[in-house]
């Protein structure tokens, strides 16, 4: 029990009669990097703001190390936030921004100076103390926002899409750095993003959300390899999602063909969603595969080619390092353990 730093118990949130969160239960362990992942409007930012204390849940409790903090205002929580658009105080210098929280705690001047210096060192911006916030680039402002939060030595750092405004290259660098800081400081990070790649790169645990509900909680590997439903599968990576029928344990029919699989526990003749990753579609230049098709389009993607292969009943997206020319006849197969069977999404 003690290893849970934050617990959300039966949290729900309603804004002007719109239900943004419906019964969220979540346990966050000490020192983990947890990511709330989902499309916009899924409730991930609201969840983060409830932890930060900026929103009150309509029902439910927030526990911090076992104690109820639901009605505690933000300035009394041992939690700090890195905001989406940084929210730096433009009337203060870099140093004054970082020292803001320390001054409120009434630390002595020398300690503040020392801590600010260390915080700037942590984010690789040594010597920027006297710069004005407006003179910094987006990436630098981002680092100051992180330093300003971390300098207070919070038990938990909340990050609300902190890399959203940066360009791709900078984003990738910052992902690596955030992970480094989290390991170095040994504190809990709760990270909100809609970018699945970012989530997979950095997280210890990913929480996939949709429409105010948690869809799946797991390690990046779990989420990627064993998505619980078609939504998670599709959101985590490009996927072929094909309607199918479970014939019996380890046997599924889709595209009018019977395939071996490894999933059990479905009803006989239960309709299911079959999920196949593009890189798991095996392509043969002859008719030795199980489904016959024609290459409809070919796009070079750098490491691999992306091909659309149309069979009688479905157009498969396939990734392969080999190129099969457009309009050529091919056949495809999928290995049993690459076929993921999911319960039909209830809509």
């Amino acid at each position: 029990m003690a290893e849970h730093i934050i617990e959300l118990v039966d949290i729900s949130k309603t804004f002007d009669s719109t239900e943004v969160l419906k019964t969220i239960n979540l346990y966050i362990r000490k020192n983990e990097f947890l990511t709330l992942l989902g499309p916009s409007g899924c409730g991930k930012t609201t969840t983060l703001r409830i932890i930060g204390g900026f929103e009150q849940p309509t029902t439910g409790k927030v526990l911090f190390e076992g104690k109820d903090i639901t009605s505690l205002p933000p300035y009394k929580r041992r939690v700090n936030t890195v905001f989406q658009r940084y929210a730096l105080f433009s009337h203060l210098s870099v140093e004054e921004n970082i020292a803001f929280g320390l001054k409120i705690k009434k630390l002595d001047k020398a300690t503040i100076k020392e801590k600010v210096r260390n915080a700037l060192k942590l984010v690789n911006l040594e010597g920027y103390e006297n710069r004005s916030v407006d003179s910094l680039s987006g990436g630098q402002q981002q680092r100051i926002a992180i330093a300003r939060a971390l300098v207070n030595e919070p038990d938990v750092l909340l990050l609300d899409e902190p890399l959203g405004a940066l360009d791709l290259k900078l984003r990738q660098d910052m992902q690596v750095e955030l992970k480094r800081m989290q390991k170095q400081l040994g504190i809990t990070f709760i990270y909100v993003t809609h970018d699945q790649e970012e989530a997979l790169t950095m997280s210890d645990t990913i929480v996939v959300m949709k429409d105010g509900l948690i869809q799946q909680i797991g390690t990046p590997e779990d989420i990627y390899n064993e998505p619980k439903n078609a939504f998670v599968a599709d959101f985590i990576g490009e996927s072929n999602i094909i309607p199918g029928i479970m014939k019996k344990d380890c046997l599924v029919e889709f595209c009018n063909t019977i395939f071996d699989c490894v999933d059990k526990g479905f009803g006989v003749n239960e309709p299911v969603d079959v999920v196949i990753r593009p890189e798991d579609v095996e392509i043969y230049p002859d008719d030795s595969g199980k489904l016959q098709g024609i290459v409809e389009s070919v796009t070079f993607k750098g490491v691999h080619y992306e091909m659309i292969i149309r069979t009688d009943s479905f157009a498969f997206t396939a990734h392969n390092t080999l190129m099969f020319p457009q309009n050529s006849k091919v056949s495809i197969s999928v290995a049993p353990d690459n076929i993921h069977i999911m319960k039909k999404a209830v809509n």
Binding site: P74, Y75, T81, F83, R85, A87, G101, K105, R148
Partner: peptide
């Protein structure tokens, strides 16, 4: 920035 006020509260103000 609508988060400015919240950022201050977050930092203990």
């Amino acid at each position: 920035n609508s988060h400015l006020y919240e950022a201050a509260l977050d930092l203990g103000a």
